[in-house]
Design a protein around this nucleic acid. Structure first.
Length: 573
RNA sequence: CGGGAUGUGGCGCAGUCUGGCAGCGCACCUGCUUUGGGAGCAGGGGGUCGGGAGUUCAAAUCUCCCCAUCCCGACCA
């Protein structure tokens, strides 16, 4: 295409509200424009990238035997009521009422619909099935952010597997795992598979594919010495045991005027690791205590996962005061009976501890956890920290910020059972099939690539997804010879299937070079009178201009580029 | 939903405190010069100052209400 007739509105400066690198570059490069918070138009360049990502997704899904479908994006409330998610999900789902007063939802995912279609499966001979689609999803995010990274409307590749038994599900899951590794490699993303929490999706196992980036929203624990990696919502670690202090082992109440924090109490001679942190939460409507060591952080998702609690939130101060008789900062679980108490295992066997006395300005010392506190349930709810020991090899873990680029779930029979699926097995017995679901956000993948493939001058697309593979930069458009040669090369490249962008704009060379770099075209051929005098044009690779700078005869350009492109695509395919 | 900030032409910003002709840079249009890394000169077009109400002779500026956007947190199938 000729740049002069394209809509590529580049900007010299990014809008003030764009913070994430990918957001700034995609806006500056003329790829996207915001309509409202969480809703973006994809302009021609972005849509070309989008289509290339989609193509890779389809190819890899097809390769594992998945079949492409297209499901409705508007669902009746009834299917969501049947699965229980109508109530479980809440405000994140867009809902509306149609003219007949029927309640409707804008689909955020499609397990219910898949399970409904799958009611037609009646025999084990029909299984397994894998269906996928690339379709717009709607989620009423409480806080859309960072450009395309978190939006309310986005295209997602969602696929679903249906198997007769657990072994079948394992197989479908593994096929997806492998497909995802190939997909991310082809997209130029270094995505690490990590153990994850399944959250409200339900199910047993889940793996997230994480791309390290400061723009991400998840923290992941990775071990550089072995292959352990897990979302902090699930990660465990080995920490040194704390020796109980020598000291008075009997309970003693002492005055602690104005001491409300772990830190303040620590300064008063009670180190955090010898304190019991007492949190008060409403767990599915029931007031509950959650106990941790003073120097540990609470990991809410771990708590949800291990207690199957649906709704948890810190209790209001007034509620706390009414139940315990004191405000946060002076709370403790000693002598409490009748309030459900959860405790982190790191408190097991601990004594000579300090905790709040449930009386403002007073604490208790000499607390023996086993003796003085009635724990209803021991649960690992501690957030691991950077540098702690890997649970599988005990070397130090690193905690890194990541973008969640993909997530695969073993759902089990939650949806197939709810929707009433059943098939006959080889013995004529009725079986409820088991399902998996697997997602990759297209726009988020684009943003993740933009986030990680860029430099000070702009984007650097991998050839596999670049909006154009090659840009032909004509330095002097009013030089007839230049234009003639450029036009010839342009037609030649096009005829050989190369995506080429012909920068025929009447702009100064500096502007053209800067724009080409900003929009991230991986390969550049510069055509100008200076080179043509010697019968050559200049080539360089966006990712490393200095080392790759090459002079090419006009006739060699096509073969040179074809080889470059196929070499890079082969590397990742 | 809690905390913080911002809203002035397509983008970046000044002006708001202390009320008095709506400005600057980039981008855009015309002409001339220039032409291998974001040109120069001259001329020109474009703004309900987020919206509404109020105070005032006079409001971008002061008051009240609302809206939008961004950041942190909560939440995130």
């Amino acid at each position: 295409m000729r740049w002069s007739s394209l809509f590529i509105p580049t900007l010299r400066e990014a809008p003030a509200e764009a913070e994430a690198v990918s957001h700034q570059l995609l806006v500056r490069g003329g790829f996207i424009r915001q309509l409202q918070s969480g809703h973006y138009s994809m302009l021609p360049l972005a849509w070309r990238v989008n289509k290339k990502i989609v193509k890779i997704l389809c190819e890899e899904m097809d390769l594992i035997g998945a079949q492409e479908v297209m499901l409705p994006a508007i669902h009746p409330a009834s299917v969501w009521q049947k699965s229980g998610r109508w109530d479980a999900i809440g405000d994140d789902m867009f809902r509306f009422v149609d003219r007949k007063d029927a309640e409707q939802v804008l689909a955020m995912t499609n397990e219910e619909v898949v399970a409904t279609v799958a009611l037609e499966l009646s025999s084990y001979r029909d299984l397994p099935q894998m269906w996928y689609q690339i379709q717009t999803k709607f989620r009423d995010e409480p806080r859309p952010k960072s450009g395309l990274l978190r939006v309310r409307e986005f295209d997602m590749k969602d696929s679903y597997s249906i198997d007769i038994d657990d072994a079948g599900l394992d197989n479908s899951f593994n096929l997806h795992h492998q497909a995802y590794e190939r997909i991310f490699a082809r997209l130029g993303l270094n995505a690490i598979p990590v153990e994850a929490s399944s959250g409200a999706m339900g199910g047993s196992d889940s793996v997230e594919f994480m791309v390290e980036s400061p723009a991400g929203e998840d923290d992941v624990a990775v071990c550089d010495s072995c292959d352990y990696s897990a979302n902090v919502e699930r990660a465990t670690s080995i920490i040194p045991e704390v020796e109980n202090r020598l000291g008075n082992e009997t309970l003693e109440k002492f005055e602690t005027p104005n001491i409300r924090t772990i830190e303040a109490l620590s300064e008063a001679g009670h180190p955090p690791e010898h304190q019991i942190k007492t949190l008060v939460y409403m767990v599915d409507g029931e007031l509950s205590l959650i106990l941790l060591r003073g120097d540990h952080q609470f990991q809410e998702q771990k708590f949800r996962d291990s207690t199957s609690a649906m709704e948890i939130a810190p209790a209001e101060e007034e509620t706390i005061k009414k139940a315990l008789g004191a405000s946060p900062g002076s709370l403790g679980a000693v002598g409490i009976d009748g309030i459900k108490t959860f405790a982190d295992p790191s408190l097991k066997g601990r004594s000579v501890m300090t905790t709040g006395a449930n009386e403002d300005d007073f604490h208790l010392s000499g607390v023996d956890v086993d003796r003085d506190i009635k724990v209803d349930q021991w649960v690992d709810v501690r957030s691991i920290a950077d540098g702690e020991g890997c649970p599988s090899c005990s070397n130090p873990l690193r905690v890194v910020r990541c973008i969640e680029a993909g997530h695969i779930f073993k759902l089990g029979r939650k949806y197939s059972e709810a929707m009433g699926m059943s098939v006959l097995d080889s013995e004529g017995n009725s079986q409820i099939p088991t399902m998996g679901s697997y997602g990759i956000g297209v726009g988020r993948a684009m943003a993740a690539i933009a986030e990680t493939c860029c430099d000070d001058s702009g984007l650097i697309w991998p050839i596999s997804v670049a909006p154009y593979e090659v840009v032909l930069t004509v330095v002097k458009t009013d030089d007839e010879n230049s234009m003639e040669v450029a036009d010839k090369i342009y037609k030649d490249l096009k005829a050989h299937g190369i995506d080429v962008l012909f920068d025929d704009r009447e702009e100064r060379p500096g502007v053209k070079f800067a724009d080409a770099e900003l929009i991230g075209i991986p390969l550049r051929v510069t055509i100008g009178p200076r080179g043509l005098e010697n019968g050559i044009v200049e080539f360089l690779d966006r990712s490393d201009p200095e080392k790759t700078q090459t002079e090419l005869g006009v006739e060699e350009v096509k073969d040179f580029l074809l080889e470059k492109i196929s070499a890079e695509l082969d590397l990742t395919a």
